[in-house]
Write a protein that binds this DNA or RNA. Structure first.
Length: 222
DNA sequence: GACCAGGCACATC
DNA sequence: GATGTGCATGGT
């Protein structure tokens, strides 16, 4: 095992010991995960919960029902999640594919290879790499690593990735260092988000951070 | 009242 | 290819 892989594993152990199981993704159904993945783009999860509660009340946590809903009405319902016009369009693009190409059947949509599913998701306007990987990991239950802003910050701070590392570079770093286990990947990403929330925000402190005594770059990049 | 949050697409250089 | 900007609500 390379030293980088060992470090990636050690970080997981530290985060898990510090924060415990995260139980992601908080959702009742796979479709709810799909919807939440779009709604949480650059948005606090609390706001997403309000939007999902609205969708549930309206009976729209169903691909066909959402597909049949006018764009303007959908936007109004998801308003608390912010960026509601663009997110309504993105949800519409996504459910259009699920309903018109897969008959609204998520099992069929998720049925092929991970690579094919990822390509299909990325071809939808409004679905970028993080949203696609979140859907594949947490809704489809397939092992793919989800990278986010916190992940890149953490890798940079601890000298595990080059400054110009891309999303796919960071993703490969984790996937090449760990067992291909969707439960492990799911916990790890959730733990990194928790780490970011508590210790890596601009005003946050480093005291008490579970990675505090690990090697750091001299100057944190932004 | 700033600042931030579990991104992405698009314009411009 | 890199950098900047619009999208918007609600909590701290």
């Amino acid at each position: 095992m390379t030293s980088t892989a060992a470090t990636i594993r050690e970080i997981y152990e530290r985060l898990h010991k510090c924060f415990g199981p995260q139980h992601w993704w908080p959702a009742r159904t796979a479709f709810e995960v799909v919807v939440g993945a779009v709604l949480t783009q650059n948005t606090n999860w609390k706001n997403v919960e309000k939007a999902i509660a609205n969708l549930r009340r309206e009976g729209l946590l169903d691909p066909k029902a959402m597909h049949a809903t006018p764009r303007a009405k959908l936007a109004e319902i998801i308003r608390p999640a912010g960026y509601y016009n663009i997110k309504a369009a993105r949800l519409a693009n996504l459910v259009k594919v699920i309903v018109e190409e897969y008959g609204g059947d998520l099992e069929r949509f998720f049925g092929g290879s991970v690579g094919a599913l990822r390509e299909r998701l990325l071809a939808i306007n409004g679905i970028g790499p993080e949203t696609a990987d979140s859907i594949i990991l947490y809704a489809a239950g397939r092992a793919t690593f989800v990278v986010d802003a916190y992940t890149c910050r953490m890798l940079g701070r601890h000298g595990l990735a080059f400054e110009d590392a891309t999303y796919d570079d960071a993703k490969a770093l984790f996937e090449d260092s760990l067992e291909q286990d969707s439960n492990l990947f799911g916990e790890y990403h959730a733990l990194i988000v928790q780490l970011g929330k508590e210790f890596c925000r601009k005003q946050a402190r480093c005291e008490g951070c579970p990675l505090e005594d690990m090697p750091h770059e001299e100057k944190a990049e932004e």
